[in-house]
Design a protein around this nucleic acid. Sequence first.
DNA 1: AAGTGGTCTAGACCACGAG
DNA 2: TCGTGGTCTAGACCACTTT
Lengths: 243, 243
Amino acid sequence: MAIDKNSFVPPYYQLAQILERQIRAGDYRPGEALPSEAELSEKYGLSRMTVRRSLSQLARAGLIRTERGKGTFVSRPELDRAVFVMEEFHKEVAARGLTSSVRLLEARLVPAPEKAAGKLQVPAGTKVLYIRRSLLAGGEPLAYDRKYLRYDRGRPILENELQYQALPEMVEKHAEALPISSKMVLQATVLNEEEARALRVAPGSPAFLLEQVLLAGDGRPVGWGWCLYRGDRYQLTSVPTVI
Amino acid sequence: MAIDKNSFVPPYYQLAQILERQIRAGDYRPGEALPSEAELSEKYGLSRMTVRRSLSQLARAGLIRTERGKGTFVSRPELDRAVFVMEEFHKEVAARGLTSSVRLLEARLVPAPEKAAGKLQVPAGTKVLYIRRSLLAGGEPLAYDRKYLRYDRGRPILENELQYQALPEMVEKHAEALPISSKMVLQATVLNEEEARALRVAPGSPAFLLEQVLLAGDGRPVGWGWCLYRGDRYQLTSVPTVI
DNA sequence: AAGTGGTCTAGACCACGAG
DNA sequence: TCGTGGTCTAGACCACTTT
């Protein structure tokens, strides 16, 4: 194989594909060294920087690993390793060809319960915004979301806002600092009476429990809560290793 | 801020950190454009290639996005998006400071059940290897694994192999083609009698159900099965956005 | 000393978007 | 036409590993 410089596919990508194919075909076996960057550069008529770009791509995909002073080696495939991506709710639902909607079940200012106060790093009893929402896919509840949010400003809450706005926009209006990142923990759980009712399934049904902390740019927590996803209608698929 | 060319931290990384800090501090807001590559190059005394490397890093982390002919823009944070990584069993367990071990419960050649035959793309009834294993962390069962594997060669199965070898090595010995990648689906479930007994918990307990297909380099399926992870002892934590 | 990957540069040409 | 990001080059110096 050679590089076609007239192709629309850029040379760095062509080389990455060539090497990927050779690795998958077993031409280079796990642990074996690839030709050095200088050799690849010479063989394919590309500058070393371009060769390195191809190799970086394969390294990011986990197919190879580089060792300074030694060489570039084919990685052993990690068969039991998987990467799962949970997209934003409306994206996830749209990808399945369904329409998403949000039903606000409750939204009020409450004194922060001890646990919520700890998570939000406010004194216990501080007024925080508590919301309960039902996330619908194709008209059917898919997830049940409960959250505590810091409420620093003196702005009144508008029912309309909560009903129709996405959570990030809502928080933006009602908290001092914007959340800019989130930390999540995913667990498997079974639903209790209340949760099952909200999701329209039988108590004891399986569900994903997603605990979420919203963080401001300075690292301070802005929100905390859980979102339950119906186990019979939600699953995560591993991201394929793609270059 | 300026670049310290005498630092051990390479310039491309220093610039990435500077820009990240400015974005997180709100100096550049979501949707806003960053200075052009030429401007950054001029301002920080770096070549354009180096500036581009910094920007690629921020783009991979999801903080910015580039648009050809238009500029580089700060992304809106996707708060409800999360990435979960499931590491190989022994790594995952070792990371918690526990020792991992594997107990082989069953391993025999069986005529492939219809579903397994379909998944493995072999005629129904073909002899395949069926194994059941208990994956232990600190002596306690953490996962319960059941798999069907193609068995093309005429080699006898050695109990010792199954007991002590990792699955990839085992498959390597007993299948024509090496598995080189896997496709997984993660679900939430509740355990039945048999599964609960294997995991030493009560029936009806929550668990993660990980369905796994092992693929050879040419894309042919080599193995198929499920692995159940105890819901009370296993959880996934989102990968932080890191540059 | 020689070979490897890691970083950086100054310049070039291209494709695309806006005026 | 001009400014933007996307790609590529030929060379350089460095840090590390092996001989």
